[in-house]
Design a protein around this nucleic acid. Sequence first.
RNA 1: GGUCCAUUCGUCUAGCCAGGUCAGGACGCCAGAUUUUCAUUCUGGUAACACGGGUUCAAAUCCCGUAUGGACUACCA
Length: 503
Amino acid sequence: MSVRVRFAPSPTGPLHIGGVRTALYNYLFAKKLGGTMILRIEDTDRSRFVPGAEDYIIESLQWCGIQFDEGVHVGGPFTPYRQSERAAMYREFVDDLLNAGRAYYAFDTPEELEQMRQRLTAKGVANPQYDHHVRMEMQNSLALSSEEVERRIRQGVPYVVRFKIPELAEVTLYDLVRGEVTVHAATLDDKVLFKSDGMPTYHLANVVDDHLMQITHVIRGEEWLPSAPLHSLLYEAFGWKAPEFAHLPLLLKPDGNGKLSKRDGDRLGFPVFPLEWKDPATGEVSSGYRESGYIPEAFINFLALLGWNPGTEQELFSMEELIEAFSIERISKKGAKFDVDKARWFNHQYLKNMDDDTLTDGLMALMAEKQLVPDREYAKTVTRLVRERAVFIKDLFEQGGYFFQAPQHYDEAVAAKQWKPENKPHLEYIAGILESHSTADGLRLKELAMQYVKENNLPTGQIMNSIRLALVGKSMGPDLFEIIPLLGVQESAARIRKALAIL
RNA sequence: GGUCCAUUCGUCUAGCCAGGUCAGGACGCCAGAUUUUCAUUCUGGUAACACGGGUUCAAAUCCCGUAUGGACUACCA
């Protein structure tokens, strides 16, 4: 049977990078095995629905290069792929469980539930929950007479349907990442499967849909591990073969411990979302990798290696190479802390491999935002000169802005160290050399300038750095005699004279 | 509190399943080389098997315990 996996997010907000990684691993696994990748939207909680979240999720995954064969946005043989639109079909499965005695009606109000928990806590019960200890003391079809149950249902008393955890010693399931996971069945509670609003809970819906959609492998976050035994029991109760499970380790905060959360990003200065997100209710904006200048391939490469490794020393992977190299066996069990520096390093690697034209496009766009319209060929030459200094495309402007605008001020620390009054006449003289020669011949200019420096026994470093300060405004950039021809000898000389007048 | 999961350099990790290597790589950091600066590049360095028992000639690797961390513990997913 061919492999079928699904990524099943809830449209309750922007997609977290942990979610992106889950989607990525599902995708890599499916493609590696020639399988099918499905996007299913789990929107059974109508109170948490956030407008725009579904589109955001789809756009994010698209940006990442994660493609779907079936799903809410592309259709497929198991449509609809949005659980709210599948609402009607869950009822029949609940009835099957009810008829088989594997589930029961429960009428308890939230207040009664709360009282039960308090009562158990007062009695010193370590783990107060709706389970075999208390189910016969509650308002449900196990404890009530069938006449009473029918009466309540007829009168429209709100109810939920709960799963009756079977009285087994333990439940064992095999996880592809962790091996056997065993829990004592007695510690499981009678989870709600069907809510009083007529919608299924996650537990029911995901099992039913995974079965109906013929999902072969459930690859999801570790936060689902505790409820996996319940799901396993549910498959058994339905008489269905359970899919294989793989629970992925969590993505942790870079500092301290704990699951990476929405707030960490802005607190620590890096995005936790693939795309920028504006909360429709509060208007609060959270930054995204795309807007921060990350190259999607670099982002994906970095993310893939957070919790998985190929077992070789290769670090740089295209999506195709990731697919080729991927295997669930090599997923780590340990949660991974997010490392911003490494993310930046990956971006730098990818940026270095981009061609001049693509980078020039980026620089041109940056300039346009600043109302500047440089000559494209000029911008391309600038790009060539400064590209190795850039981690992000936006750095091209940071690194090469002086090619378009003369420095507005001079770095004080550099000035204090390199700019000496006694050198001023010499700088004046070098400006003169520049003015009297052709822009085209950088090598010749360098020769002349160095010759002058040597003949007069001048400190090379001070002179050169002073010229650099005049042209660039600080101590950075390519070789001076690569800068000067591009700037033009007249402009270069003018900048030196301006600096001489000011400093 | 309870259940479950995890634990190798600061970080991501290889090595563990099939015990025997100076515990390897990458990011970061430090130093050096190059250079008129910055960056790149190159070279070198720093730095880890959570702890305690056991099994064994030999344990990062197998077993037990402890500690620490995390997830879950809703009519949320």
